[in-house]
Simulated assay, not measured.
Amino acid sequence: MRWVTFDCYGTLIDWRHGIRTGAELVAPGQGERLLEAYTRHEPEVQTTKPVLRYRDVLAETLRRACAEEKVDLAPDDASILGETIPYWPPFPDVAAGLAELRAAGWRLALLTNCDRDLVAGALRRLPVPFEAVVTAEEAGAYKPEFAHFEVFRSAYEPEAWVHVAQSYFHDQVPAHRLGLPRVWINRLGHEPEDPSVIQRVQPGLHGLRAAVEAAYDEAAR
């Protein structure tokens, strides 16, 4: 059984759009500033408070972002990201990229730092069904810890497995350390800290099937 595992937010769902527009609802005109501050704080919140549910990670990180940027945030408004996350949109290239993989016989799974109740909203918006989902709630940790990958391997025993994700920190580094074939969806045009971590790179999901199969074949040699 051939599997492609994906990160969800940032890879398939437009995470930056969701954070920015959610922040705009409670702090008009401050969405871009708060998005950049949010991206700096979230990994620390996930590391220092690994037992928090993801909706609470969203709220705590937004509080820290607002404090850093000196933006007033009403206590009740800290929940805005958790309330709006079910409505964050998929990227336009997702439908074709996923459909091409399924047509080629690959099964699809999500390894997400979200909780199951929140990722249910994403699954309704994604245009292609997924056979498996592993959440932070089930794994008991947030990526870049290995728990998501270990839970998936134990539950599904994949014969062929390629991991596809946008986040260098959360996904590419642990997949590299586990020796998994991998494709980096580098939507932001970033340079990797360590180029050896990156096996295949794509700017989006167009042509993803070829990249996935090349990564798998390269690792199998």
Rank of each mutant, 00 (worst) to 15 (best):
Q46W: 06
L34C: 12
C66K: 04
F91E: 00
I80T: 05
P50E: 13
L34W: 07
I80Q: 05
Q46N: 12
D93M: 13
L58D: 08
T84E: 15
P92L: 15
L81N: 11
L98V: 07
Y54V: 03
G82F: 04
R53D: 00
A78M: 05
D72H: 03
L98P: 00
R40C: 07
T47G: 08
T48I: 00
K49V: 00
L101A: 05
T48H: 15
R53H: 06
T39R: 10
P89K: 10
E68A: 15
R64T: 01
K70Y: 01
C66R: 07
A67D: 00
T39L: 15
R102G: 06
V45M: 13
V57C: 14
R55A: 15
T48G: 03
A65G: 09
I80V: 15
V94W: 13
D76C: 08
E100W: 01
R53V: 00
G97S: 08
T84Y: 05
V71W: 01
A59H: 04
T47M: 09
R63S: 08
A95Y: 08
A59N: 06
A37F: 03
R55S: 11
R64I: 05
A67I: 02
P89M: 08
A37D: 08
V57Q: 15
T84L: 13
V71E: 03
E68F: 01
G82Q: 09
D77C: 12
P90V: 04
F91L: 02
L101W: 02
T61V: 10
P92V: 11
V51Y: 13
D72E: 03
L35W: 09
Y87N: 14
V71D: 00
K70C: 01
E42Q: 12
L34D: 06
E32F: 04
T48N: 10
E32P: 03
K49G: 02
D77A: 15
A67T: 00
L62V: 14
Y54L: 15
L73G: 10
E100N: 07
A37K: 11
V71M: 09
E60Y: 11
E44V: 12
E60D: 14
L101N: 04
V94E: 10
R40K: 09
T61I: 10
D56W: 06
E68S: 11
A96Y: 07
L62C: 14
V45N: 14
